[in-house]
Nucleic acid binder design. Structure first.
Length: 374
DNA sequence: TCCATTTGACCCAC
DNA sequence: GTGGGTCAAATGGA
């Protein structure tokens, strides 16, 4: 599997955001839940679902019969792999950077203009203040206008416009950045220009406590190779991880987010076959891990997956194929157990390559598959 | 009380 | 005149 740098970086952002949402949801649910808290929990859950949807779409298996979810446009050349997993990059259909001379009040102004199309228009590492919105002709959606939060106090001219393009799943937004930040905000996440922004709902308290960059503002400008090994596998071989390590890290992160556990880094090339994550993926794939594993992970994983049902609702059997379901003994009910198929494909195509202890996979239908990979 | 968001009005280029 | 962009008073949440 060959991951493009942009794809890896976006996947990391999505999953890191998902991890935070998971923690937030857990904190909400652990406390007394009034109506407001309930609403917030629902909102967080929805956003979490979107994170999964985007992440899984990026990891979606390729097949001739596969089709992208309704409304998700072809975004970038797909990288086909030996394992028939394609990397989709829904975050940036295009990225156009240009300089324009605008005449305003009789004066010519040179502005840099960068356009990207993304399902996550608000998370770009900078802080913005919304100052207007407008109905735009020939568009069904409002255009939102943002200024840098520090536009006045630091004379920062950076602006941002966000306009939804379609109602797909996930919906895609055209984000236009105007002018460069001159306010010395923490570095944005990669792939976004120097004008990118955080959620428009950033509060003053958040700003006051933002002297150190949040997690998503880690310096990700290193090249793709080794990115995950440095972020998620700090103990892995230094000097740039292998593609295998990156895959392992991605699966770890994804599984940890799904299972709600910490994104613990596995020892290089030796998968923790008794870890809750492994148990969860194996069980979700229809395999039969040890009883101990199941007892740890199944209930919580099933509950979380149930919560995420709507997220995968637009995937149907034809997306992942009846063959996959049969191969992995996954039952596809009328209500769509597609999430199990997603997990199965991840588990079957990537996960087994990192386990030398095959005991957890000694179930019907997996040994032959493992043999085909080895 | 402070601050971000909302929203109608205004400005200006085309 | 029209449409896109911006301003600023009103509003509401913390």
């Amino acid at each position: 599997m060959a991951f493009g740098q942009d794809t890896i970086e976006q996947l990391y952002r999505e999953l890191a955001g998902g991890r935070r949402l998971s923690a937030k949801l857990q904190a909400l649910l652990e406390g007394p839940l009034d109506s407001r808290g309930q609403k917030e929990a629902v909102d967080v859950s929805r956003e979490l679902g979107r994170v999964f949807m985007v992440s899984l779409y990026m990891l979606k298996p390729c097949s001739n019969s596969s089709r992208r979810p309704e409304g998700v446009t072809r975004t970038a050349p797909e990288t086909r792999t030996d394992d028939s997993i394609c990397l989709h990059t829904p975050a940036r259909v295009k990225r156009v950077r240009s300089e324009e001379v605008l005449v305003r009040n009789g004066r010519e102004e040179v502005v840099t203009r960068t356009e990207i199309i993304t399902p996550s228009p608000y998370k770009d590492g900078y802080q913005w203040r919304k100052y207007g919105q407008k109905n735009i002709q020939d568009s069904n959606y409002l255009r939102l206008y943002f200024k840098c939060t520090f536009s006045r106090e630091r004379s920062c001219a950076a602006k941002k416009q966000v306009q939804q393009r379609d109602a797909g799943e996930p919906p895609m937004f055209l984000v236009t950045y105007l002018n460069e930040h001159t306010c010395q905000q923490p570095q944005a996440v990669p792939g976004t220009p120097n004008t990118a922004g955080s959620s428009p709902t950033t509060t003053s308290r958040q700003r006051q406590s933002s002297s150190s960059p949040p997690a998503e503002m880690l310096d990700l400008t290193m090249n793709g190779a080794g990115l995950f090994s440095r972020l998620l596998l700090p103990h892995a071989v230094g000097g740039g991880g292998s593609a295998a390590e990156e895959e392992a890290a991605i699966v770890t992160c994804l599984a940890a987010v799904i299972s709600g556990g910490a994104a613990a880094a596995p020892p290089p090339l030796i998968w923790p076959t008794s870890a809750p994550e492994a148990a969860f993926v194996a069980s979700a794939a229809g395999h039969s891990p040890s009883a101990a594993d199941e007892s740890v992970a199944d209930e919580a994983a099933a509950a979380q997956m149930a919560d995420m049902d709507y997220c995968f609702g637009q995937y149907d059997q034809s997306t992942f194929g009846a063959a996959a379901a049969a191969d992995h003994r996954v039952l596809i009910g009328d209500d769509g157990d597609v999430q199990r198929i997603v997990a199965a494909r991840i588990a079957d195509t990537v996960w087994p390559r990192y386990t030398r202890d095959t005991s957890a996979w000694e179930t019907a239908g997996t040994s032959s598959m493992r043999g085909s990979i080895d």
